[in-house]
Design a protein around this nucleic acid. Structure first.
Lengths: 245, 245
DNA sequence: AAGTGGTCTAGACCACCGC
DNA sequence: CGGTGGTCTAGACCACTTC
């Protein structure tokens, strides 16, 4: 990298610089379970205080790149494993990370009254107006999933929606950035209509992911239900012990 | 609470005391989106330094109980939502949190040679010896899931296994505490044998969760495959945007 | 006993929000 | 502009691992 590698936006903080340096060191010259320099040594190496070193290590630890052993040291995490920590991604991002090119075919855009499921999920009074978008999602041109998204018209009305652009991007620019989502994953049996869209036999199993997305402040933004072909899609996530009460 | 409320083990750290205090305050007298006292005020209230306050707030934020807005304040999170963050749980814990009583019927315990799937998952050479445990998992006495667990005999050999006790507990006491797991969730169609065990129609959809568990240091401990009745079980998790590279 | 990470203090300045 | 959270410093002591 040249000398101006931090051209990303607001100028990097020190702990990000330290984390990036450690990341690079690991990638270039360290193996799993090798010990990192001690926090005191890292202070000297990067010319920062201990708290800044610890903040950098905390970040790397969240990423699964290192792990701490109290009283012993900080070590490089096992390879292969890791980096699959549950992350909120768009369909496009998800497919890209799996090595597919994503595309989609809009099947319907309409203004509807919220049914029981949608109303309960978005905490609306029954019958509230919602924008409904149904899309067939394709990976490398092949049917992968059917996605139904419901948004309160107060968040995004039908005229505002631009079919070409990313929905998440449109929400972000209109001040409704999705920050958090609760997801429920279940196995279902495909009915005739859905199996035809996904080009599989009726009665096949499929993975159904229901999602309620909210902003950083907790405002409910969308309810989405995505039905994936079971033979082409699996849901992966990493979990750790902890997360008290 | 009386004056000795911290009888749990090693004596609570200050930030845990502060976090507990804030948690109690929220539960007793605050509503979602109410502003917490500022960090400077909390310093005075609890008689600690700012960093300790921030550590407490960071913990509450992870738990989803509060959220920060830079330049504005720290606020109580939306209720209902939250607390479903992905956590590593045993079947028993999982069922308890859903309000069921868990039990199980051991179907088989044997020493087997690792097949391709197990060997690859646990990074063993093909044909290595493993302990295999198959159990039917019940919730309130009704079939809920079929669980197959494979452990290298070097981790747990068949004679050491005690059918009565929790497997995770036995692993913990023998120095192989499970800390992290990678899971893959897919939808499958039940074959005849599995549908009989789960007491559903052959050909029904089911949720299959495959898990590779490892210790804090990255040692691979177990490969487990659990097949849940789709009509009784859904997998829930919360995710947030973030988690860079 | 020496070295490590874990907690904690008492300051400081910066970036951002709302008035 | 004042108040808020975000970053950072230069120390200190504690708990744990290792020898």
């Amino acid at each position: 990298m040249s000398s101006h590698e931090k051209g990303n936006q607001h100028m990097a903080h020190k702990y990000e610089t330290v984390a990036a340096g450690i990341r690079a060191t690991i990638a270039e010259s360290m193996a799993p379970h090798d010990a990192l320099p001690s926090e005191r040594e890292l202070m000297a190496i990067y010319g920062v205080s201990r708290m800044t070193v610890r903040q950098a290590i905390a970040k790397l630890s969240e990423e699964g790149r290192v792990y701490n052993v109290h009283g012993s040291g900080t070590y490089v995490g096992s390879t292969d494993l890791f980096s699959k920590s549950p992350k909120l991604t768009s369909f496009t991002e998800d497919m890209m990370s799996r090595g597919y090119s994503a595309s989609s075919r809009v099947l319907a855009v309409s203004r509807v009254e919220a049914d029981d499921v949608v109303a309960r999920a978005l905490e609306l009074v029954a019958g509230s107006e919602c924008t409904h978008i149904r899309r067939l999602r394709l990976a490398d041109g092949n049917p992968m999933a059917i996605e139904d998204v419901y948004l309160p018209t107060t968040i995004l009305d039908i005229e505002q929606f631009n079919l070409g652009d990313s929905l998440y991007e449109q929400l972000r620019t209109s001040g409704h950035e999705v920050y958090r989502a609760e997801q429920e994953i279940q196995a279902i049996t495909l009915n005739e209509e859905r199996s035809r869209l996904l080009e599989v036999e009726p009665g096949s199993a499929a993975l159904c992911v229901s999602r309620v997305s909210s902003s950083r402040r907790g405002q409910l933004i969308e309810y989405a239900r995505t039905i994936y072909r079971a033979d082409r899609y699996t849901f992966q996530l990493a979990v750790t012990r902890e997360n008290d009460r």
